[in-house]
Nucleic acid binder design. Structure first.
Lengths: 249, 249
DNA sequence: CTGAGTAATTGATCTAACTCAATTCACGGA
DNA sequence: TCCGTGAATTGAGTTAGATCAATTACTCAG
């Protein structure tokens, strides 16, 4: 797709350049403390980890890393939003994941061998991320094996999520993939219905679900005309998830 | 698909019934010792874990567990082959993974909450698996946090694999998904070409790749007529992976 | 506030892949 | 070894979704 090839050109330059901003005045890192990977850490250890990290500010569409780059850091999103995507030889851009504040990404690099990024990561709007050295976290776990529990639990969850994502993609038709994707966006226990916000612009959700933007648009229009959803920009209201699911078969 | 609905009926009964076969005469468990999850375990601890486990013999098409069943065990494959699949409301059977001897599966259940299987598991031919209590392994890690390192590494690898599987499925056309799938089956460093064996019957590979068996068959026939592959039963010879990949675009 | 550039929508083809159907093949069990 | 049942293949017809094209609507930077 033209868009990302443009991005390719635009950001050939200095990926991973840190801003040496002090990290003491930390209200925005509150969320970090409650993340599964860090919540069991003693204050002192977390402090030290943060000291070794750098805060990065990313502009709209700015590239953070490329696929196959050696991976010396993983990331925690402080604010904004990012996406992970792959680019293949013919330049087709396939979106694989979107990442919200409070999430970690590329954290599997802590134990990857060889440690290199499996995809591109770019900011979808201006964002701030914490860039944590893989080595620092590994050293911490080596010194305090008891911290591994939380990490294990997090990794297991991650593997389950990816498995579930794969499951959706084995559904053979575009409409049903989209329906399942939407239902997964609903918060836990919203069987009565609710509003969901697309974590990506529509054309990227389409890419994530292996369909064309036109197809995405048409399916949404169709669901709308059948009163299965109400659409307002990137916000969708799903009144009856049961019925929506039953359409999917 | 009719097949698995039949399986549904055939095996309504006693899933997870163990055979109390002594596990001392262990040559076949050699592979277990070299698995990432167990290789760092001291002999005594591994012994104890095995003592708490049961060896299960599964017949052709026998169901091991169902999706949504509470998960008190995870599994190591001693011999044979299994597959993981989902069944949706309309009875469509979607294959998600195949598992070979030496592999573990459902091991993410060790840290899942709630611990319940995310899919069905059935033997593709007569197989033997070791059924390991989740609690036993957790207790072991609680007692010996130093063992967590290996587990973390394994889980990270698993997450990366799933991510890669997802990546293939975001490819929009059937032919290219199949080509990438085949190339991934090639052993590391077989750029010169080589033989791969399909880990599943063709109709299940088709399901895994979200296409119909007919489509799978036609694509294979087409690749064959273009001298891109040679087919012999479930064995495929790929003479020039580069060229195959370049067809895919 | 305004305009440029991208995203979203909608319409009109076209084609890859699905469906249905019929035949051949191969594997597992007796 | 043979037999039966499900797997694989091949053909014909249909359709979901891709592609191409044109318009409208947002978004963001100046």
């Amino acid at each position: 797709m033209a868009m990302t090839q443009a991005a390719e050109q635009r950001y050939t330059k200095p990926v991973l350049v840190a801003i040496n901003k002090p990290l003491d005045e930390e209200d925005s890192l509150q969320a970090l403390r409650s993340h599964a990977l860090f919540q069991s850490l003693r204050a002192k250890d977390l402090e030290s980890l943060i000291q070794q990290s750098r805060r990065l500010r990313l502009g709209h569409h700015q590239l953070l890393y490329r696929q196959d780059m050696p991976a010396h850091h993983f990331f925690f999103v402080i604010s904004g939003r990012l996406r992970l995507y792959r680019l293949d030889s013919s330049g087709v851009d396939r979106t694989l994941d979107s990442i919200a504040p409070g999430d970690c990404f590329a954290e599997v690099m802590i134990y990857a061998d060889p440690p290199q990024y499996a995809c591109y990561a770019e900011a979808l709007k201006s964002s701030e991320v914490l860039m944590i050295p893989v080595k620092a976290y590994r050293d911490l776990l080596d010194k305090h094996p008891e911290y591994a529990q939380a990490a294990l639990s997090h990794y297991a969850k991650r593997a389950v999520t990816r498995f579930h994502d794969l499951e959706i993609m084995t559904v053979q038709n575009a409409r049903d993939r989209l329906i399942r994707y939407l239902i997964d966006l609903l918060p836990e226990g919203a069987e009565k219905g609710g509003e969901v916000e697309l974590p990506l612009p529509k054309c990227l959700v389409a890419s994530r679900l292996a369909m064309q933007p036109e197809t995405f648009s048409r399916i949404l229009a169709d669901l709308k005309s059948n009163n299965l959803i109400r659409v307002n920009r990137s916000k969708l209201f799903i009144s009856d998830p049961q019925r929506l699911m039953s359409i999917s078969q």
